[in-house]
Every structure is written in C-alpha cells, then in structure tokens.
Write a protein that binds this DNA or RNA. Structure first.
Length: 421
RNA sequence: GGUCAGGUGGCUGAGUGGUUGAAAGCGCCGGAUUCGAAAUCCGGUAUAGGGGCAACUCUAUCGCGGGUUCGAAUCCCGCCCUGACUGCCA
C-alpha cells in the first residue's frame, strides 16, 4: 500500500503522477480521512491507557483486600471501555474506508514514461527483423492449424465453450517445444525454474494488485482463484519476508497455464488462439533492490527479445504511455510480434517495473543494512506467452501448401522434425 | 477429510488469568580487563503505529481473527500452519 507519510509530506507528487494516468486529485480525500483517523486513534489510545492503568490498580487493590477501591476502579474502567468501544468502531470504519481507497489506486508512473491517453500513444523504441514477403496470401494461424487437423476449437467448445482450443500431435508438441526452449534460455540467464501453485488465495492477488479492483477478470473456486499469470505466484514467494541483500536480484521463471475470464474483451479476437481463457506462458520475475530495478528491467526485456531472435520472428518493442500502463506498473515495455495474416504487430510480452508497489502490498523487504529493512522492488514479464508464440511461428513459417517449416532452433526440441504437415 | 499434540523475541526455551513485552540460556552490539585475543565481568539488544520541537510518552503485537473478563501469552470459538496416527485419492 502507499506510504501514507509520503502522501502527507508531498501530496502534490502523488496527485500529479496520478493525473498523468487521467485521475482526479486523490490526496484531499486521503488526507482528510487520515487526519480523522489519527485524531480518533489518539483518543482511543488515551482511553486504553486509562483502562490499563485502572486495571492494574484493581489488581493492587484486591491484593490489599480493599474491595471498595476495587469497585470504584471497575466503574472507571467501564467508562473507559465505553469510549473505546464507540470510538474503536468509528476508527475501524474510517480505516477500512481509507484502505479501500488506497487499494484501488494505481501505481505512480515513472517520470520518464511518455505521456499519452491510450495504446495509440505508445512509443516504438526497437524494431527487429523484416516482415517476410510472401509470394502467396498468408493464412491465419487458426486456418492453418485446422487445415492440418491439429488445432480443434470445435471439440474444445463442446466441453468448455468458446476461447478454448485443443492442440493435437505436432502442434501440441510445438507448444511444449516452445516452452522448453524458453525455459532453457531463461534459466541460462539466471532465472530459477519454479513450479508454483496455480490456485492462490485472495491475499496473494491483492499483493500483486489484481484484487480488489479486477476480480471480474479472474476465475475462482470456493476459496482460491486461478492465477491469471505466474507473476502472482512467483512474486508472492517473497510475501512477508525479509531477504538478505546478497540474494538480490532474485530471478525466477515458471512455465504455467494462465486463466483469464476476458470479461472486458467480448467480441475482440474471438477467432483463433490469440485470446484464450487458458493459455501457457513462461513468466519472468525479478525481486531486487531499488537501485537494481532499472537494470533488471532492461535485462528482462533483452531476455524476452532473445527468444524471438532465436526463433527469427520479426518484432518491435514499444514503451507504454501513461494512459496504457497497467495498474501495478511504473513503467512497461511491450514486445509485439509480426503476424502476417493481420499485417500488424501483436503483443507477445509485457515487461513491467512495479517499483515498491507490490512489495508494500505484500510486505516484502530486504536488509539494506543493520536494522535497515526496506521494501524490495519487483519486476515481471513474459518470456514469452507460449500460445501467442505458437501463433507467430505458424503464421511466419507457413508455406503455400499450408505446411509449416519448423524454426531451426526448435528442431532438436521437436525430436528432429523439420516440418509440420 | 478425521483424531490427537503443538505454534512464545534472531535461536533454544520457561511461563495456565494481575507491573510478563514476556524468566533463563545462546547469539549480537557497546564497555571494562588485555600488548592483542580467548575467558570473565558490566550494560544494552523486537516490530509497527499515535502524541510531542525534543527529552520522552502512550497503544498494539506471544500463528491469525473474534469472544469472555476490571485485567488474556494464559480461558472460549473460528481459521491458518507444523507433527503423529488415520481415511479417501492422482
């Protein structure tokens, strides 16, 4: 959660940062609540002090056998308890209100994030590879996959509805091969391979920022939610802990399914595998000291880029503008891969520096020195979204007859197979 | 899932209703002693928050959340976790 002391000291800093995301000034409401809370808290604590003092005297009075004095003190305590009960309830309500308010506010954009209202204002910073010229009209990945008989939306819909798919045979293996390639590359960069829980408590999602505001994007069971990204599980590995400085940066990677309700995206990307309720992703997370975060951010971007380079898939990197930044992010790079059938670049990875936003929400700290525990900074990114990478491979490596050339780097992972179909 | 036993400060561990925020030991920090060190001795050693210019003071915290009580680490309820036994099952 935000540092209330910092808000008290420099409210303008917060309001102007939030304004860049299009929010109205928030600190007047926050500070008003904060003032009431502190005043009430002081009164409650004074009443508690009176109660504690009288209670101790009761023990002493009873020890002397002074029953009258004990009775008088009991009445005094009863009065104090009344005050505590009334003001305590009031205090609790005020605190809940403030916490709800703070929990619903997004992270502050980093100073150097470009200004903008939405996607169209993102800034392209890298372009790699040339989109291939096809001598024929390139097909969409789902047409290719269905024609090969290895991508089956219809059967998946019978058991699970829309936005689900069944991959068969070589395409299923391709999915596994891509994930294996990515894990091998990322573990080679010092990310520890991890197999975390896919079902997590609300508190974990609150820590990373999906809750309380974005509950409708999640799937849940009676007591758990399904992770929408392994960022949740990996980042929460440091929840409520104090790390030694020498273990930082702590780099983690995991290949997991991700589950998203896609509540807000009705009608978008309804065809094909671009937007599914369930998809695989290799996630990268770094837990680090504040002064390491910027460097880690760049490193993680490189780690993700290298996968596309290894696969020889054309891509570009854009820096998200203030209006397109995710809830928990201070700064984000998106990697977009070229899709020939759409003649456009589509997001395949998103790499964010969250600063101490998540660390505060989950109370994750490190020892900056003797008796100096500070919040860690957290970063996360896809390295890469496996399903979308599969889409990109199919479309970019398709041949006129509908067969697919397997990228060289994947051939060993495919057991020597060089083409599909 | 069931039954039983547990969860106390950095660690070990005492404490079953009243100056116990918590004995004792270990560890750690400072000092004395020493040429220096070991040993010994003395002192200090949790976190978060409120009030105060400050010295300082108050509140909360003995897994977490409620409750009983004038007063709870101690009693009651729920939950979480650990161990043992046990059930079902990939």
């Amino acid at each position: 959660m935000f540092d209330i002391k910092a808000i008290r000291e420099k409210p303008d800093r917060f309001d102007s940062a939030w304004a860049r995301r299009g929010l109205d000034p928030q600190t007047p409401r926050i500070l008003e609540r904060d003032a009431v809370i502190r005043k009430t808290k002081t009164m409650v604590q004074e009443a508690e002090a009176a109660r504690n003092k009288a209670s101790k005297q009761i023990g002493a009075a009873m020890g002397r056998g002074d029953a009258d004095e004990a009775e008088r003190l009991k009445a005094e305590v009863a009065g104090a308890k009344n005050v505590i009960a009334v003001l305590g309830t009031q205090l609790e309500t005020e605190e809940d209100t403030l916490n709800a308010l703070l929990a619903g506010l997004p992270n502050l954009p980093a100073d150097d994030v470009p200004e903008g209202a939405g996607e169209e204002d993102n800034v392209e910073i890298v372009k790699w590879g040339e989109p291939k010229e096809f001598s024929f009209e390139p097909k969409a990945h789902d047409d290719l996959g269905e024609a090969l008989g290895l991508m089956d939306f219809e059967t998946a819909a019978k058991m699970s509805g829309s936005r689900f798919v069944i991959l068969r045979g070589a395409l299923s293996r391709l999915d596994r091969a891509l994930a294996a390639l990515m894990l091998d590359m990322q573990t080679g960069e010092g990310f520890e391979e991890t197999s975390p829980p896919l079902l997590v408590w609300p508190i974990a999602l609150h820590g990373t920022g999906q809750l309380p505001k974005f509950a409708e994007d999640l799937y849940g069971t009676q007591e758990h939610f399904l992770i929408p990204t392994a960022e949740v599980s990996l980042t929460n590995t440091v929840r409520e802990s104090i790390l030694d400085a020498n273990v930082l940066p702590k780099r983690l990677t995991a290949h997991t399914p991700c589950f998203r309700s896609e509540a807000g995206s009705a009608g978008r990307d309804t065809k094909g595998m671009i937007r599914q309720h369930q998809f695989n992703k290799v996630e990268l997370v770094s837990i680090c000291a504040p002064d390491q975060a910027e460097e880690e951010h760049k490193t993680m971007l490189c780690c993700a880029e290298r996968v596309l380079q290894a696969l020889k898939l054309p891509y570009r990197v854009v820096e998200l503008c203030t209006g397109d930044l995710g809830f928990g992010a201070q700064k984000t790079y998106d990697i977009e891969v070229w899709l020939p059938s759409q003649r456009t670049y589509r997001e395949i990875s998103s790499i964010s520096n969250c600063g101490d936003f998540q660390a505060r929400r989950m109370n994750a700290r490190y020892k900056a020195g003797e008796k100096d525990n500070r919040f860690v900074h957290t970063l996360n990114g896809s390295g890469l979204a496996v399903g979308r990478t599969l889409v990109a491979v199919l479309e970019n490596y398709q041949r006129e007859d509908g067969s697919i050339t397997i990228p060289d780097v994947l051939v060993p992972y495919m057991g020597g197979m060089e083409t599909i179909g």
